[in-house]
C-alpha cells in the first residue's frame, strides 16, 4: 500500500513540475521526487542505487538548480501560454489506461525465476561488468558541459556573412 502511495505521489509531483510557473517550486518538486524514488529503491533492496539517488539527484543537483534559479532575475521570466496545462489530466488518464492494460494482460507473464541473482559486489558491477556504461556517462557529462556552454554563449560572428 505504501509503495502505491509513493508512486502516485511521484506522478503528481511530476505533473506539478510541468505546470508550476515558479522555477523554485519545480526544483523542489524534482528534489522530492528523487527523495521518494530513493525510498522506493530502499524498499526494493537496491540500497546503493538509493544512496546515489538521494545524494546526487535529491542533493547535489537540487543545489545546482536552486543556485541557478536564484541567479535569474524577474525580468528573465517570460510569460507563456497555459493551454498545455489543461491537457495534462487527459494525457495522464490515457497513460494510466495504457499502464492498466499492460499490467492486466502482460505483467503476469514475467517468469519470476528469470530475475537474476546479484552478480557480484558493487565494485565488480560498477567497475567491471558495466564499465562500458561509465564511458557513456562520461560522454553524457561532456555533452552536457559543451551543451550549456553552447546554448548560453554570446554569439559573435567570426566573419561577415558575405
Amino acid at each position: 500500500m505504501l509503495l502505491w502511495v509513493l508512486l502516485v505521489l511521484m506522478v503528481l509531483l511530476s505533473v506539478g513540475c510541468c505546470i508550476f510557473k515558479d522555477l523554485l517550486y519545480v526544483a523542489v518538486s524534482l528534489a522530492t521526487i528523487s527523495a521518494i524514488l530513493a525510498l522506493v529503491l530502499f524498499m526494493f533492496g537496491a540500497n546503493i542505487a538509493g544512496v546515489f539517488e538521494l545524494s546526487v539527484c535529491a542533493g547535489l543537483i537540487t543545489v545546482l538548480f536552486i543556485a541557478t534559479v536564484s541567479l535569474t532575475k524577474d525580468s528573465d521570466q517570460k510569460g507563456e501560454t497555459r493551454l498545455p496545462a489543461y491537457f495534462v489530466p487527459l494525457v495522464i488518464l490515457i497513460f494510466v489506461g495504457i499502464d492498466y492494460f499492460i499490467i492486466q494482460h502482460f505483467m503476469h507473464a514475467i517468469p519470476p525465476a528469470a530475475i537474476p541473482q546479484p552478480s557480484g559486489t558493487f565494485q565488480k558491477v560498477f567497475w567491471e561488468l558495466r564499465s562500458a556504461d561509465i564511458l557513456g556517462q562520461l560522454g553524457l557529462i561532456f555533452a552536457g558541459v559543451f551543451g550549456i556552454l553552447s546554448l548560453f554563449r554570446v554569439v559573435t560572428k567570426e566573419k561577415k556573412h558575405e
Binding site: 561532456f142 555533452a143 559543451f146 551543451g147 553552447s150 554563449r153 554569439v155 560572428k157 567570426e158 566573419k159
Partner: peptide, 13 residues
C-alpha cells in the same frame, strides 16, 4: 560555422 560562432563548442559536440 563561421557565421554562427562557437566553433570549438560546435566541433566538440
Amino acid at each position: 560555422i563561421g557565421h554562427l560562432g562557437g566553433r570549438g563548442k560546435f566541433f566538440a559536440l
